[in-house]
Amino acid sequence: MIVYLMCFILFLTGMYGVLSQRNLIKIVIGLSVMEISIFLFMALIGYIDAGVAPIVTQTGEQLIYVDPLPQAMVLTAIVIGLATNAMLLAIAIRLYKKYKTFDVRKINQLKG
């Protein structure tokens, strides 16, 4: 149970980073931390105590396998996460070129 809670604490840490930081790059880091906490959580969902990797062998023994589906999901989600991070950082770099700062308080042409 404690690992699930730690995942959740990691998630909240990331969210705190996104909400409290003023630097664009730190906001991106906060989002990545949130993302990774969810990946960890999903990998944990498929874990079974004393389970082995789900590869069917010829020997015919009855082994306990861990659930492979969440692992496949996490792999896909990591690839998507890469795309989001690349996009965010590209925009952050462009913003730096235009405004000469990473401070969100100074990037305020739009009023929300």
Partner: peptide
Amino acid sequence: ELEASFKYQVLGGM
């Protein structure tokens, strides 16, 4: 445009 996109991405990502 860049500012709007960054804002949209952070909230959309969350």
